[in-house]
Design a protein around this nucleic acid. Sequence first.
DNA 1: CTTCGTTTGGTGTTTCAGAGAACATAACAC
DNA 2: GTGTTATGTTCTCTGAAACACCAAACGAAG
Lengths: 408, 408
Amino acid sequence: MMSSPRQRAAPTAPPSELDPSRRNNLALITSLVHHHRVLSRAQLTKRTGLNRSTVGTLIGQLAALGLVYETAPTGEAQVGRPSPEVRPSPSIAALAVYPEIDAVTIGLVNLGGIVQKKIRFATERIPSAREAVNIAAAVIEGMRTELEHSYRITGIGVAVPGLVNPDDGTVRHAPHLGWRDEPVARMLTEATGYACQAANDASLAAEAELIFGAGAGRDNLVYLNGGASGIGGGIISNGRLLRGASGYAGELGHTFVRTSGEQCHCGATGCLETEVSQGRLFDLLGLSGGDTPQLEQALGASSSAAVAEEVSRQLGFLAIALRNAVNTFNPEVIILDGFLGVLYALAPATLDDLLLSQAMDGPATQAKVHPAALGSNLMMIGAAELGFARFLADPTGFGTTGLGSAAE
Amino acid sequence: MMSSPRQRAAPTAPPSELDPSRRNNLALITSLVHHHRVLSRAQLTKRTGLNRSTVGTLIGQLAALGLVYETAPTGEAQVGRPSPEVRPSPSIAALAVYPEIDAVTIGLVNLGGIVQKKIRFATERIPSAREAVNIAAAVIEGMRTELEHSYRITGIGVAVPGLVNPDDGTVRHAPHLGWRDEPVARMLTEATGYACQAANDASLAAEAELIFGAGAGRDNLVYLNGGASGIGGGIISNGRLLRGASGYAGELGHTFVRTSGEQCHCGATGCLETEVSQGRLFDLLGLSGGDTPQLEQALGASSSAAVAEEVSRQLGFLAIALRNAVNTFNPEVIILDGFLGVLYALAPATLDDLLLSQAMDGPATQAKVHPAALGSNLMMIGAAELGFARFLADPTGFGTTGLGSAAE
DNA sequence: CTTCGTTTGGTGTTTCAGAGAACATAACAC
DNA sequence: GTGTTATGTTCTCTGAAACACCAAACGAAG
């Protein structure tokens, strides 16, 4: 509720001795470059509204710290002096960790959301928090010489399928992993020495899609992901992720969609994720289980009426949840990921029509349903965004570490 | 998504020739004084984090413009030099307009959210947009000499029960008033000469309760109002009102709560506002209709089992909608206004328990249900907040008008 | 191929906001 | 009274950004 006023060299604020105004502008430029991957100086001037000379100074400062670098102008030729292009330094990176029921995935992601490396460590059984941390720490330890030699790591972001308090990175409850009150962020920090933050996986995915994916340039987005373990949701409103009092906001998987529906593991009945699930479809398809691509293939191949009916039944419930979301958030984009994306792809017009007829006129016409655009890298990019957060808020705080800029 | 950078004397920005940094800090102090009504200089220093000397300069500037005034310290005596108290000038005011199906209410509200005057103009029939504007303009015209003599009016805010695009103040659809695509804000500006903005009534009520009411000091709040015409909602998340792509967000009255429920006027079925309504209760009570206080009295006096059952039925549906809201927003406060407040007062423990058992553990324990705190002034305060918005964003833009400060 | 207009980067100057230090002031505590 | 503490006041200092001017690099027109 309070903007951060100018506060030069406050004795209690060690991170940066800069004028807040300067810090803000440096952060603004760094974020823009990060989000767009390439941006000419002229474009930065327009976007920030700052003076040409000021932008020049700022970029010079960032380049001197090795955070961005400029290249000769190659953009479309046009009248006037060409403007050099500014790109994020490839040496700045964040680590991403994503524990799931059958694997822990660790990623190395550059500024610009470029996934440099992705290591999926399959586990025999559902990993405990301790195990997940150990796996991640071991993999990171294995990369350490490379990390320390070629990168500046700004932090680790952990995407957790469950309720996470992002303030301290504690997992309150991750039902499918069986975790409860696990201080994952602290554990990983102690194990690796890198600053670490944790948040809900769907929330991070929503942010990733907002920045680099199907929601680029928008300010209001609803993301829904259907996975083996249930349905997660993330909501971006007014350009910002909905956090709520403790960061638990966005649990759209437990939207009420059916009177006298089945009991959900959350304690309530009629939740979206009990009515709309991969498992029901696999059962009808005669399969014992599988992942989303397998489901897609099996559904495409099936001509069973019972399967078709179940698909349309699930689309109906999905429409109810989406209608609620449209009425409450008035989003520009709704992103369906995982098997929800598969369901949508089977009958896009059906869902679109249901939504148009059920949601209120104004919001309904504005909301466009999209499949996720970032594919398998989505969660790595989202989690890394968390690892970048502190860096992007104050880029100069990270400029002190050695390591020259990668290009010049 | 973009912070406003420094931009001194930009030729295209006439509103204020100040440095953005200064403008921000002036706005910050003005808003704080507005929200708290009284605040000592020392408290302002702590809250803003600015230097004592800077706060002194800023307050001096605001006082010179007659926007705030300082009084001798009267606060609790404590060690150290007493700090003078800063209050908003009583000459700064905004106008509030609230069209309903049976009346148009016009209010004059001071900084600090003090309702100075409230005029309810009862109408024989539902007013058209033109009529509502004419009524408001006439009442304002009647006050004009007083307004011009003793006040500086920062603007008019219109609270509309329906879908409003706050960007241009156009009413997209107000079903109960029968309005469609009415440019109310523009009409009122043309009729009165004052700058005017319009927004959804429940959204404004939510903001009023956040600032001055049951949500004071919080950042996440869900407001639900039950009126004769339906259920409206407003949501505050991360300290900001949820707007959505076109400002239509927050329509919680159309949350899905019942499979195969009745058809709602919005086109869907099973909406909260078709299942939970005053009308059903009045019918069972044998009354032809009435307002909320009458309902409260009748319900208190009734001992009918059918009425009791209907109350519990409605509480059940309300709980479903609230459970959704708690899961999606993780709010600290849920405010129930109008007849929803009456329902809650009949059996607070029942609703609390339903919510605790149905919503997810983490969010459920944090959400506290409250009745609205601002009573009959709520909508005037909320609408006036809209009239204050531009002033609070750049207080110096309004300092030019004559009129000395009211006190010194 | 030359010239002109246009757009941009670079440099030095100017303005201004806020921090900080030193001092003044007004309360309480003893 | 004297000491302590918290605050307002004044002045100086620093740094950031705008601005004006010049140089550079391009397309367009002749």
